[in-house]
Measured scan of single mutants.
Amino acid sequence: MPVRRGHVAPQNTFLDTIIRKFEGQSRKFIIANARVENCAVIYCNDGFCELCGYSRAEVMQRPCTCDFLHGPRTQRRAAAQIAQALLGAEERKVEIAFYRKDGSCFLCLVDVVPVKNEDGAVIMFILNFEVVMEKDMVGSPAHDTNHRGPPTSWLAPGRAKTFRLKLPALLALTARESSVRSGGAGGAGAPGAVVVDVDLTPAAPSSESLALDEVTAMDNHVAGLGPAEERRALVGPGSPPRSAPGQLPSPRAHSLNPDASGSSCSLARTRSRESCASVRRASSADDIEAMRAGVLPPPPRHASTGAMHPLRSGLLNSTSDSDLVRYRTISKIPQITLNFVDLKGDPFLASPTSDREIIAPKIKERTHNVTEKVTQVLSLGADVLPEYKLQAPRIHRWTILHYSPFKAVWDWLILLLVIYTAVFTPYSAAFLLKETEEGPPATECGYACQPLAVVDLIVDIMFIVDILINFRTTYVNANEEVVSHPGRIAVHYFKGWFLIDMVAAIPFDLLI
């Protein structure tokens, strides 16, 4: 008679799926529990143990900040960024110097990925580790590398530091407007667009060049630039800015003055950032001319202004700041037409079709709590990747769950009947059967004279019903998954307890 339990259901295979997918890609990662103190490590794979030199037993239950890997060259700011990422709910990448158990130093890129439950609360953290440099290539500990984003994938490793954006290309926007319009339909740009040429040739750093990471940081200074100062900065030398009595002219307006920039070969870094931020506020060169004239017309309804409409929906549905990093990277690809469009465009503009998908598509409701890094690593669709929660398995109709209350009560009843059979069957065979043979035949009273025979008949009927119930009862397979398919249940029961239950259900007393 089957006594099969499996009270692990309803099970959740999400954690096993993450481990299996990460292991298949030869990654070095740990999984931490966000619900406990210090976000203790609950799993670390073999790749991480080989990377740091510690065994799994030495890593388990330690804080996922990996303070046991810190050393003299470990930056405090990087460690603080990892700790801050564990307090938030967004994906974050941090470069930090770690030390192995043998004392060797290596520069590592740590990717902190939160995993949320159905309520939107962070319950786990996945920390992925990628070695960037070994100890002989690690720089000085005073050099802070965590304020910069990861290198873009479309640049060669040897040319990542030679990417320079020439400031004269930004200063000569109005001069290039006529050349853009003359391109017409034969050019790649839309009317009114501004073409910015980027020099990728390796050259020595000069005062006129600005690194790509500095251009990325310009967006942080746009908020500090007032509207009046932006307007004066875009007017140009024809209309000098008016300053109040006793007030000095704005240095932001002076930063885009061609006369002032041409007199000296070098520009201050602050002026460069502010000038680029001011130019980015204009949607095209037409807006710059309109600002000089004193009238700013409404933005025209053409394809170039609607190019950012799908980007707005993608940004609203993005799951991490990696989408913004990807957008900034692609927006700086050289030799393309940049349409400086305000994100607050007309909502009635139709979304044009684009061959290049900048932001990841909208994630469906079932995966809105899973970050983009987890979705990318697992390579699963929205119909396959579940949320991290207890999910009731989908069972067929008329199927009994093996952990249901009805099955528990039924098993206790069958257990009592088995005990009765084990006690009274030998007793009936030894004593009652002998008395029946010696006594007179009682054929007239039937079952009324033999109450134990009636009980034995009921017990046999219950055993037959138990066999039928076992054909529709779920079970737990070797992978700790609840199986509810009727065919698989029948095959599993035939290979197991079916023969024993059938022999126990045969009414031998009635056959004798």
Rank of each mutant, 00 (worst) to 15 (best):
I333E: 14
L86Q: 01
L385W: 07
Y327D: 07
L315S: 15
A34H: 05
E134D: 12
I288F: 14
S351G: 08
D144E: 11
N45I: 01
L167N: 15
A228I: 07
R27Y: 09
R164Q: 06
L316C: 05
T216M: 15
L170T: 11
S272D: 06
P334M: 01
V215L: 08
N12K: 12
K135W: 05
R164F: 09
G192I: 01
F29G: 01
A9F: 14
G88V: 12
S26Y: 08
A32K: 01
Q376Y: 11
T74L: 01
E289F: 04
G306N: 05
V110F: 01
G88W: 13
V370K: 10
R62C: 07
I19F: 03
L378P: 04
L107H: 14
V180Q: 03
A97G: 05
F129I: 01
N369M: 04
I363Y: 15
T375N: 04
Y43S: 01
A34E: 01
L109S: 15
I359N: 06
K28I: 09
S255Y: 05
Q75Y: 04
V113M: 15
G224W: 06
G71L: 01
A223E: 09
A9D: 15
C52V: 13
G6Q: 14
M124P: 01
P249L: 12
V41G: 01
F348D: 12
P202I: 01
P361K: 09
V374I: 13
A303S: 11
P258D: 13
I82F: 14
G294M: 04
G158Y: 15
G120C: 07
L315M: 08
R252G: 14
I42R: 01
V195E: 01
G226A: 15
V113H: 13
A175I: 01
S320G: 13
Y54E: 01
Q84N: 06
Q247E: 15
A260K: 07
K116F: 12
G71Y: 01
L311C: 05
D286H: 15
P249C: 10
A142P: 13
A244I: 04
N117C: 15
V341T: 11
S243W: 04
H221I: 12
A142F: 15
E134T: 15
L256W: 12
T152E: 05
M124F: 13
L296V: 15
E58T: 01
R312G: 11
K362F: 08
V180L: 12
